[in-house]
Design a protein around this nucleic acid. Structure first.
Lengths: 129, 129
DNA sequence: ACCCAGAATGAAAATGGTTGTCAAAATCCC
DNA sequence: GGGATTTTGACAACCATTTTCATTCTGGGT
């Protein structure tokens, strides 16, 4: 029953960076899988809820997913050209967020941090063009 | 000519927390302003491009805007219940993001940081319920 | 094996924020 | 004033995501 969900998870694991739901769907279809778009969305959502994959929003409002190596809390460094992603831990940031929240009387503090940049190979490619 | 744009900016300034484009539009209309939804979107976009307002995405993909006090780079601490927003500067975070990017060979590093929590009065309200 | 309840699936339609189109209106410039 | 240019806004188009709902699995229980 979690057959479909696993298939989605696998497809995601096979990818390098972040993929949108539509991407995953298209890829599974072109691989010959018989799956509906609805199910992909549901599977992705379930995986995200269970902490199995990470979600973030692109600038144009699309949700993108990625199977993350660790289930621990971490952040991402994403190449804005090729989408290559590095997972980074940031103890400093965690502490900073907590401190900032506490300073203003906020409780149950959570935070989202995403770092974007151009990775080495992409900036090389840009220079070459 | 920037008449409409200023009107949008004023409406935004009059608000406490973050407001969606649709919110701003509704508010201006109920205030008797004659303005189109398209124009509100365009004005907000222009303001955002010019750094006059801050933009962030809610979890459900909606863009929300806020007239920010300073034009400088800063982040936000947002109450997840009432939307009250505090602008916070985080030199530590800036340095951390730069360092993390450089460490992995990334250039042109930018970052987004949002901190969410429950503000003092809201957590009091919750307890009282 | 058979039957049934409940969950999972997916095609198609609905939703809703955002963006594009284009003609009318305002503004500028000479 | 007259024509070029920009701004506006009603409306339609877009498109990712969600809902709907009928159909298909699945796993007992007998």
């Amino acid at each position: 029953m979690t057959n479909r969900r696993d298939a989605v998870h696998d497809t995601l694991r096979r990818s390098e960076g972040f993929r949108s739901a539509q991407d995953v769907y298209a890829e599974m279809r072109s691989d010959g899988a018989k799956i509906g778009l609805t199910t992909v969305y549901r599977a992705l959502q379930a995986l995200a809820d269970g902490g199995k994959v990470d979600v973030l929003r692109t600038d144009d409002g699309e949700s993108v997913y990625r199977a993350c190596a660790s289930g621990d809390h971490h952040h991402h460094l994403v190449c804005r050209r090729c989408g290559r992603t590095v997972e980074v831990a940031g103890p400093d940031v965690e502490r900073w967020a907590e401190a900032v929240g506490a300073e203003h009387g906020f409780t149950d503090v959570t935070h989202t941090v995403e770092v974007f940049g151009t990775c080495a190979s992409c900036s090389a490619a840009v220079r070459a063009s």
